[in-house]
Amino acid sequence: MNNKALNIVKRVLLAIALPAIVYLILGIIRPDIYFSFNTLIMQLTQTMKLTLVGWAMLFGMSVGLFDFSVGSRIILAGLVGIHMSQFMGVIGFVLGVVVTSLILAGITGAAFAGLRIPSIITGYAMLLIFESIATIYQKKFTVIVTDNIAIFGKAPGIYVLTIVAFVLIYVVFNNTKFGYQIKAIGGNEAVARSMGIKAVQLKLLTYIVGGAFLSIAALVEVGYTGSVTAKTSMQSMQSCFTPMMGVMIGMNLASCNPVVGSFIGSFCISIVGSGLVALGIESRLQNVVVGLFLLVFLGLKGNSDRLSHLFSRKKKEAVNIN
């Protein structure tokens, strides 16, 4: 029994190693900032906002789909929620966000599964359409985020929602038939299909389940920033890159499952973000630093066999590496 416990401890340690190292490096540079409690709380809230969007994309990404319409869907769902909150208060807000988010996810999924086009291209098409709908819709009413609907993005609300989302996604991703089958498709789709897993329907389901979790992210987003503004010419795509990178770090952290991994990935990103500001470098370079970090991480992982091969070869002084 104890080696099982040891195994869990080992995995947890490995999982925490990554953010701990990043935290230490930045802590040494600016100790006054990093070892204070409310900085940690602040970074955790930023991480939660990133992770909620990341979790919504996790299902699609674990079956190999990249969907850039996520940003525009959050904007449109937020707008509908705010508009309905002006008639029906908080219930209207929640209803508006959740229902719109599910409908938009359904439309995108149907376009992908129905038209059999790669997810990136479906994302482009839907992105163009949702952005322009949001621009036109935004003119019809005044976009004011009243306090009663901002609670979801503020301190207590965001924690509650994140914990609820974590429990939900942990169960859905790890302990449901849906979770098992998308991991099977992500591993080897051809074999999974021969085992009787209906790949196309499941990919459609990843859009809809992703849409459900995206509604939680949208609830938080509205309260977190306190406003929602439409974007055009595909600028809403930029907001998808950072959470996507958090999930990629998570999916490649061998030591823990992707749900926790995505949280850790997003935590690293927000630490790097605040670290850059602390060092006085422009915060815009966050994407660059995180991107390079991910490249080095994937490079090492991808070539680990060749690297170890290289080192052992050096010891043996064998000939002809071709």
Partner: peptide, 13 residues
Amino acid sequence: EDYKAAMQNALVA
């Protein structure tokens, strides 16, 4: 990209 996070980081620094 995220005004609130950028502002929070600045307030920390």
